[in-house]
Amino acid sequence: MSPQHAAGVAANGGLRADAARNRDRIVAAAREVFAAEGQKAPLDEIARSAGVGNATLYRHFPTRRDLVVAVVRDVSERAADRAEDALAAGVDPFEALRGLFLAGVEERVGVMCTMLGTADGDPGRRAAGDRLTQVVERLASRARATGALRADVTAGDILLAIGRLTRPLPDGSECRLDGDLVRRQLLIFLDGLRAPAATQLPGTGPSVADLRRVPAGRS
């Protein structure tokens, strides 16, 4: 766990061990329920999935927004932790980038993207997002330096792709975007990131600053 993530845990802190476990279970359950049903899913369903009572959920998260913010922060931190672990272990930068995309599936990054508007304005959410952005920029820079990542792909391209490719399909779709199907789509996309480039990309890739100017929910 990174110092930033540990600090975030401590900030929730001062909690007894059993209370901290309950909070973690609620956030994990909310991530899965929001992924399946959207952020307006019934909170009592999240409590049942977490194995706690409604009173326990509301004690930790008095409002729905509080829970959404916690999920967004948790997803960002967990994805950044995994990418930083890969960098620290000296994993090939492109393989670390590949791992980040697959982590995006497991950590439900696409779900987080649909909730950014609700979580907007929370300093902790912004700090967690900034940390994930910095890790992606470092990964992209190292992968370019090895000649594995095509030079015209930006960190903004990568962040946008992770959000789009791991996002659930609209309600009612007969094709569930999960499991092997998601990984298949991601691996097809990753092949397109490799240098040398087979085609010239139109325009200029988005910067992280460009993405921040896009209203939440419109990416």
Rank of each mutant, 00 (worst) to 15 (best):
L190Y: 05
R21V: 14
V71C: 07
F101R: 03
R21G: 11
S141D: 15
G90N: 11
F101G: 04
V68T: 09
E95I: 06
P3R: 05
I158E: 08
L181W: 10
E77R: 14
G121D: 08
E45D: 15
E107R: 00
A55G: 14
L169E: 15
M112D: 08
A17K: 11
G121S: 03
V72N: 00
E84P: 00
L116H: 00
I162K: 00
D74V: 07
A6G: 03
L87E: 10
L149H: 02
T63K: 04
R164S: 13
G163S: 01
R126G: 09
I188G: 12
R78L: 09
T114C: 05
S219W: 14
R64G: 10
G156H: 03
C113K: 03
Q4K: 11
S219H: 15
A86C: 00
T199S: 13
A88L: 14
A55T: 15
I46E: 07
A198W: 13
P170M: 05
L43G: 09
L165I: 13
R183A: 12
I162R: 10
L97N: 00
F61Y: 02
I158V: 13
G13T: 06
G53I: 04
L177W: 06
R78W: 00
R184I: 13
L160C: 11
F61H: 02
R82T: 12
A10W: 09
M112N: 04
Q200H: 14
A70M: 00
Q134W: 02
S219Y: 14
D122R: 02
T56W: 02
V111P: 10
A10G: 08
V208F: 08
R25Y: 07
R167P: 05
A50G: 07
T204A: 14
G99L: 09
A148C: 06
R212H: 15
V91L: 07
L159R: 05
A96G: 10
V135W: 05
D24S: 12
V109F: 07
R64T: 01
A127S: 11
T199C: 14
A7Y: 02
D180Q: 14
M112E: 08
S76F: 06
V105M: 03
G147C: 06
P215F: 03
L211D: 07
E77G: 02
F101W: 08
T133N: 01
R184P: 01
E77Y: 09
D74Y: 06
E174N: 12
R125F: 06
A11H: 07
V9T: 09
L211E: 02
A29K: 00
C113V: 08
E106C: 10
V208Q: 03
D180M: 14
R218H: 14
L97E: 11
A127I: 02
R73G: 00
S173R: 13
A30G: 02
D18Y: 07
D171W: 13
R194A: 12
D130Y: 03
G147P: 01
R212C: 12
V109P: 01
N22Q: 15
A30K: 05
S49C: 12
T154S: 13
G117K: 01
A103S: 12
L211I: 01
R213V: 13
L100G: 03
H60R: 00
D178A: 13
